[in-house]
Simulated assay, not measured.
Amino acid sequence: MTKMRGEMNGARQIPATVIHARITGTGSYLPGAPVSNDDLRARGIDTTDEWIVERTGIRARHLAAEGVTSSDLALEASRRALEAAGRLPDEVDLIVYATSTPDFIFPSSAAILQHKLGIKNGGAAFDVQAVCTGFAYGLAVAEKFIRSGSHKCALVVGAEVFSRILNWEDRGTCVLFGDGAGAVVLEASEQPGILASALHADGSYSDILSVPGQVSHGQVIGSPFLQMDGKAVFKFAVKVLSEAALEVLGAAGMETDDIDWLIPHQANIRILQATARKLEISEDKVIVSVDCHGNTSAASVPLALDQAVRGGKIKPGDILLLEGVGGGFTWGAVLLRF
């Protein structure tokens, strides 16, 4: 049993040994074959490869087949993360699942994923809804569970089937998004892994990026499709991504020069480049995967992370800055040693 120190007068006791949380495995999954910009045009969308690439940097995305749910994608990503960590599913005692496109209204996609993984230990499992910031929220929440001593091995997932909420007649939005999943195993450790995190939200900006529909009396009331003010989102995203980065660096007593890799939400190449310029970080240190899978919302950061790890870019000991910004508006950052 962990030794405790504290006063006997009812003051909260504090563990003598500090518990940290480290990422021990990563995984990702993209459904089906890549759908190129030319493929979209062939499907009748009024666009061109040049128009999309110039404005977004996106060349392809993956779209889930009919009947494939976000938890199906999450299952494959989670299996790969667990394999990389050398863990069995039943060793996971916490699942934090970030998504804006859950399988059902309820039960949670986290609980469904727990069942699909065959986990029978009764550990906690719940969804987080922070749209494109969801993975950063999920990682920060899971870290706090682990550092409290209540849990030892968490699965943090971002999974989306955004193709289900797109208006395919709106070329300004439908070309931007794709489906996919990413996951990490986060474990208790004696060595620091997560160094600092910052999470924020401001609901007054909710009208610039939203899906304003709701289910009432068995019917969808309002629009079930994503709508966005692209210019307003761009301006807001660059501002808050820069601020969140500086906030976590300050909390950890670090400078931008200490960052080995910046992994921002993969929304648009222009946002990634503008954020790097504002932080005075070389673009060579920015992980970019938006070109091959588009904006996968909560899945984009863990997808980019896993691809960079498996591609040999990210090495053990590297300092990573993960960031997200999404509808709500929400934004946040996590600084960690890999």
Score class of each variant (00 low, 15 high):
Gln227Met: 09
Ile194Glu: 02
His200Asn: 13
Asp260His: 14
Glu243Lys: 14
Leu226Phe: 12
Val215Glu: 11
Gly253Asn: 09
Ala196Lys: 11
Ala267Gly: 13
Pro302Leu: 05
Ala274Gln: 12
Ile281Phe: 10
Gln219Lys: 15
Ala196Pro: 05
Leu303Lys: 06
Glu247Thr: 15
Thr275Met: 11
Leu279Arg: 04
Val215Leu: 13
Ala252Phe: 10
Gly213His: 05
Gly222Tyr: 14
Leu246Asn: 10
Leu199Ala: 09
Ser297Thr: 15
Asp257Glu: 15
Ser210Cys: 15
Ser242Leu: 00
His293Val: 04
Lys285Cys: 05
Ser289Trp: 06
His200Thr: 00
Gly253Thr: 08
Ile259Pro: 01
Glu280Tyr: 00
Trp261Ala: 04
Asp207Phe: 00
Asn295Met: 11
Ile208Ser: 00
Asp207Gly: 00
His265Trp: 11
Ala298Asn: 02
His200Lys: 09
Ala304Arg: 02
Ala201Asn: 12
Asp202Ile: 05
Gln214Asn: 08
Gly203Asn: 04
Leu241Gly: 01
Asp257Arg: 15
Ala276Gly: 04
Phe225Val: 05
His265Leu: 05
Ser300Phe: 07
Leu209Lys: 02
Leu303Ile: 15
Glu255Val: 09
Leu199Phe: 12
Leu246Trp: 14
Ala276Thr: 09
Thr256Tyr: 00
Ala198Cys: 13
Ile287Leu: 12
Leu241Val: 05
Leu246Tyr: 11
Ser282Ala: 13
Ala299Glu: 03
Gly294Lys: 04
Ile208Asp: 03
Ser216Phe: 14
Pro302Cys: 04
Val238Lys: 05
Ala244Trp: 00
Leu195Arg: 14
Gln266Tyr: 12
Leu305Gly: 06
Glu247Tyr: 01
Ala299Ser: 11
Ala276Phe: 13
Leu199Ile: 13
Ala267Val: 09
Glu280Val: 13
Phe234Val: 13
Ile194Leu: 14
Glu280Pro: 00
Ala276Gln: 11
Leu241Phe: 08
Thr296Tyr: 05
Leu279Lys: 05
Ile271Trp: 11
Ser297Ala: 15
Val215Arg: 03
Ser300Lys: 04
Ala201Thr: 14
Asn268Gly: 10
Ser289Leu: 08
Tyr205Cys: 06
His200Met: 07
Gly253Trp: 12
Arg270Tyr: 02
Asp202Trp: 01
Asp229Thr: 09
Ala298His: 07
Gly222Asp: 01
Ala251Glu: 12
Phe225Ile: 00
Gln227Phe: 00
Gly218Leu: 06
Gln227His: 02
Leu249Gly: 05
Ala276Asp: 08
Pro302Ala: 07
Leu226Ala: 08
Ser300His: 06
Glu283Asp: 14
Ser197Leu: 04
